[in-house]
Design a protein around this nucleic acid. Structure first.
Lengths: 109, 109
DNA sequence: TGACACTATGTCATATATGACATATCGTAT
DNA sequence: ATACGATATGTCATATATGACATAGTGTCA
């Protein structure tokens, strides 16, 4: 289960941290990454519910298709700034962002 | 009141947007900035409640006093990433972040 | 007054993020 | 099969963020 996660993250290019302990990430790095993952998944959902292609969304955001793809893949080179600005541009409310972020934590209801 | 805000932001180095309309910012830019302001204020609060100096916090974050000052001043050169990572490092929960972000919106209770 | 801890501001070399582009892969029709 | 729209992946030049450092300002205490 943690192995799976490791693969999932390594595959995505996350080679964070230094020492070869546990998963190689500190709890804080982990929470930060989970937060980005949650936002990127939400972005994908929102785009799809609007029936937009990555290309169309990219133009709307003055970005490029490849960057949108990377956002949705939670590529390590995409910043929280870009994710948040994109979601705001897509019409997400602060409350909505808050919900997504809160859920990236304990996933408690 | 809006004049005040403009000064407040311009003074801080925010020279966003292009055209000279209203405040020079689109609603999305504005919401993005408010979000950063909310986080930076929260960071200041959290640091103070822990009775840490900027210098001490900086070392803890492997950063520098000047960058901490800029974080707290919501300087345009500080990223959401840095703000969020700092707050997580300071022990903020996802729920807490969510609250701060939600409040940066309508400020509804 | 000066000395002090703390904070703010400006600059810079380096590190990281970004849009753009090419190209590959996938899905799903015909 | 092939063709086509969408998505993924890799690279690169440029843009932006970062830590570090110097220095200036601010408050407080003797």
């Amino acid at each position: 289960m943690e192995k799976t996660k490791r693969k999932r993250l390594e595959k995505r290019g996350w080679k964070i941290g230094s020492a070869a302990e546990f998963l190689g990430l500190t709890p804080e790095e982990n929470r930060y990454i989970e937060l980005k993952l949650a936002l990127s998944e939400h972005l994908k959902k929102r785009r799809r519910s609007r029936r937009l292609s990555q290309e169309t969304l990219a133009k709307f955001l003055s970005s490029s298709q490849s960057r949108v793809a990377k956002m949705e893949a939670a590529d390590p080179t995409v910043s929280l700034d870009l994710l948040v600005r994109s979601l705001l541009a897509l019409g997400s409310s602060e409350k909505e962002l808050a919900k997504v972020i809160a859920s990236s934590g304990g996933a408690r209801t």
